[in-house]
């Protein structure tokens, strides 16, 4: 794409870069603040005096964090959940998106399934009945209670289905002539050219599993089994509700702002690492280009 650049092109480059860098800076600030707090003196943090740079740099919170066995246990539970949960999400999403991407002539019951799924996406019976179902299936306190109830991410199914729709039928017809089965067509033809879409919904699943704290709270009876975000959620305590001196110890143990910040920073590192890794699947022109040729 070598072109002689015009003045207008330079100007638009400058504008684009300025806007992007400004937005990036804006998004970097809160994280910067968290990192600074985690390295600061704890009273300075409590006094709300830490901005973008740490005050009296020290590593105490990270030292304490290393000793916090439950934090790391929860961390590993979250990792396990992300791996298993995302795998199951992707498998089911792919399997459902393919038939749904067909029209009613090709797959008669398509619209019925679709409406049922939209209904399931929007309506819910609330948490008590779901809790009772999970409990009566014997899933309480197991990793499966965090994975199975959300096994079908309907939003992702709809996204992938729309992506599959954009793949021309001609590609499939040749394979049908060769007598390939539906599954084979899906896995051998559709998936290889859908990597950017799969990377996107895969990322959504990973993030969804990593960020969710509520199902951990609901389905885990032993706090030793909490996933990371459920553990971190416990750091928010409303001090104004405390009226009894016996609760003082509890506040003292959670109001350690610097340690809390360190926990949050460490909890973000995995998602910080996973994104660049997935980005390599966002290669331009991969999809439709290969189809059209």
């Amino acid at each position: 794409m070598i072109k002689s650049k015009t003045f207008g092109s330079y100007l638009s480059d400058i504008i684009i870069w300025t806007v992007l860098l400004l937005l990036t800076a804006l998004c970097f600030l809160p994280l910067m603040n968290m990192v600074s707090v985690s390295f600061s003196d704890s009273t300075a943090a409590q006094a709300n005096q830490v901005g973008l740079l740490p005050v009296n740099v020290n590593f105490n919170s990270y030292r304490l964090l290393l000793e916090d066995a439950q934090f790391w246990r929860s961390f590993m539970i979250s990792v396990e959940r992300v791996v298993l949960g995302t795998a199951l999400n992707l498998l089911l999403t792919v399997l459902m998106a393919y038939p749904l991407s067909k029209n009613t002539k090709q797959f008669g019951a398509r619209n019925i399934y679709m409406n049922v799924m939209i209904f399931a996406m929007l309506f819910s019976g609330g948490m008590i009945p779901l809790f009772i179902v999970v409990k009566s299936l014997g899933l309480m306190d197991t990793i499966w209670s965090l994975i199975l109830p959300g096994a079908v991410p309907i939003f992702n199914v709809i996204l992938l289905m729309n992506f599959f729709k954009s793949i021309p039928d001609s590609l499939e017809e040749a394979a049908i002539m060769d007598g390939a089965s539906k599954l084979k067509i899906l896995f051998k033809i559709y998936l290889p050219i859908s990597l950017p879409a799969l990377a996107t919904i895969g990322l959504f699943s990973i993030v969804g599993h990593w960020n969710d704290y509520f199902s951990g709270l609901l389905y885990m009876n032993s706090s030793a089994n909490f996933p990371l975000q459920t553990y971190i959620q416990q750091l928010n305590v409303d001090v104004t509700k405390i009226t009894d001196p016996s609760q003082l110890k509890a506040i003292a143990s959670v109001s350690n702002k610097t340690l809390n910040a360190a926990k949050i920073v460490v909890s973000i590192i995995p998602v910080l690492l996973i994104y660049p890794f997935l980005q390599k699947y966002f290669t331009s022109g991969l999809v439709i280009g290969s189809v059209k040729e």
Partner: peptide, 25 residues
């Protein structure tokens, strides 16, 4: 058609158990 139904089945089972059954709530 059967192939398509079979592909939908695993996901639908999950939806029935974890979305539709609790809807009695």
């Amino acid at each position: 058609q059967l192939g398509y139904h079979l592909m939908m089945a695993p996901g639908m089972i999950f939806l029935i158990i974890f979305s539709f059954v609790p809807m009695f709530g």
